[in-house]
Amino acid sequence: MFDDLMFPGVRLDNWQMMQWERIGLTGVLARMRPRGALEIGVYHGGSLTLTSQFAESIIAIDIDPEVPGRFACPSNVDLRIGSSEALVPQALADFQARGLPLNFVLIDADHSAAGVRRDLELVLAYQPTEPLVVLMHDSGNPETRRGILSVDWAANPHLHFVDCDFIPGQIIEHAVTETSGEIWGGLGLAYLDGRVRTGAPEIRQSARTSIRCLHHCAPDLTILPR
Rank of each mutant, 00 (worst) to 15 (best):
A190L: 04
H160K: 07
H160E: 05
P168G: 13
L189C: 07
G194F: 06
T177E: 10
I172T: 11
V176I: 11
C164N: 09
A155S: 15
V176W: 09
P168E: 10
N156A: 15
H160Y: 10
D165R: 07
V162A: 04
I203Y: 11
R204C: 08
G186M: 07
I167E: 15
V196K: 09
P201L: 10
G199A: 01
C164S: 12
G181W: 00
W153K: 13
I183S: 01
E202P: 05
I183C: 00
W184R: 03
P168N: 11
E182W: 11
S150C: 03
T179H: 08
E173D: 12
I172P: 07
T179E: 10
G185Y: 05
V196M: 10
T198W: 06
F161N: 04
L189D: 01
V176R: 14
G186D: 13
I148P: 02
G186W: 09
S180H: 12
S180M: 07
Y191R: 04
I172C: 06
P168S: 12
D193R: 00
A200Q: 14
G194T: 02
E178L: 13
E178R: 02
G199P: 02
D152K: 11
S206D: 05
T198C: 13
V151W: 09
F161R: 14
L149H: 02
Q170W: 13
P201V: 13
E173P: 02
S180I: 03
W184E: 05
A190G: 04
D163H: 01
E178Q: 13
A175T: 08
L187G: 08
I148S: 00
V162S: 04
